[in-house]
Design a protein around this nucleic acid. Structure first.
Lengths: 215, 215
DNA sequence: GTACATATACTCGTCTGCAAGTAATCGCAT
DNA sequence: ATGCGATTACTTGCAGACGAGTATATGTAC
């Protein structure tokens, strides 16, 4: 199905898109990507950059144009994108856009162990997250509005997506908090009792032991 | 800020939550987690499991209880959670729940290079994603409804979150598609011209060259 | 009863990611 | 002119992730 990419690090995608504009040396690629704000889309770590570029070179997606040494500075190798690199860029973009893949956001992992916290503490922490999230959102909305003045929307489409998803997260947390603070969340009493008396209700012990697949 | 965890792999969180129930050996942990559906929340790879468990042991979060060898089968080491492990579980849960961290979903990366595709193709691919997403959603909604009958909502909270986020993504794609198919998306003509004539409009070349930070 | 698939339970070795280190040059204040 | 912090530009080395391999046990179909 999704054929395994020769270089799977998403940083390689960014490198390809930078080199599609013009030939550059690695350090220049990194600064250009940062200037474009692509560091929001994928991690740009120095260590990884050179590893990834070496691999891309090995697999023929990019090629060294020249390797100049000015004075006694470290050698600078300028790379250009190859035809096969261009193909990879387009093919990869197609895949990423068209095929949903299961992600595992850290918040989801946190929620999956929410029960280990006392419900009152969980509520406090969720409210804190919501506050931080709303601050981020205001800032992101502002930034987007600024950028929209100078940059076509096509190049901000990821930010618009990001905003939409974060808004959904905030809304979801808000509705969960409403249930928790009003006390209408089902099982809230059992949850609280478990943390205050240490008593694990029979139904839960049983549940925990069940090893059969629930699918 | 977020003090760097001694074992950062999220698989360790799942292992802690499993061992919080009762002592187990690694293979049993994995099957239990899978039975609980935790493999949706974080990757459970065989190779990683043993590496992670070894590190957790080294850092005193878990401890070997016994190491039995039945017949000539490979040795089985049963681990239990330690106090420090319990503390780590709770502290980690607190952090994950309360602190939003920038994630980099693959779709976002895909969108960031959307311009390399012809707008008509991009539209087709987005529609395909939307279709797949909607199938997933129906399946996930069904599964959740089934589970809700036997399992308290507290233990399905991650799935509810997941559903909410995916629904938001679907809605966002739907609205983008509406603009693309109606032709009302700003800059659509320039985008199409670029792909059909290869002509890069002056405003874009200029933009691409600008290296100054947009922040 | 014996062949063959499936489940159990790890181990090994490679490849990747990346923090930290290195080392030259540039800007600029004193 | 001279120190020194920032910037440029990579290199190194190690820890962690994980696919693939290994070896036994158990079920089961004929």
């Amino acid at each position: 199905m999704a054929k395994r990419r020769k270089v799977s690090n998403l940083l390689a995608l960014a490198v390809l898109s930078a080199l599609a504009q013009r030939a550059m040396h690695p350090y220049e690629i990194a600064t250009t990507l940062r200037a474009w704000g692509k560091d929001q889309d994928m991690q740009i770590k120095w260590g990884s950059l050179y590893t990834v570029i070496r691999n891309m070179d090995k697999h023929g997606m990019i090629a060294a144009v020249q390797s100049s040494r000015e004075g006694r500075r470290p050698e600078r190798t300028v790379y250009r994108i190859t035809d096969s690199g261009r193909a990879e860029l387009v093919d990869w973009a197609r895949e990423l856009v068209s095929t949903p893949m299961p992600e595992q956001p850290r918040f989801r992992a946190g929620l999956s162990v929410l029960a280990v916290l006392h419900p009152d503490e969980a509520t406090r922490l969720l409210r804190r997250r919501l506050d931080l999230l709303e601050d981020n959102l205001t800032a992101a909305r502002d930034a987007l509005a600024q950028h929209t003045r100078h940059i076509p929307r096509l190049f901000l489409v990821e930010s618009e997506y990001d905003l939409a998803v974060q808004e959904a997260e905030a809304a979801w947390i808000r509705s969960l908090l409403a249930e928790l603070t009003s006390g209408s969340y089902p099982g809230l009493d059992v949850w609280r009792a478990f943390h205050e008396t240490g008593e694990m209700p029979a139904e839960l012990t049983e549940l925990a032991e069940r090893t059969s697949s629930t699918e």
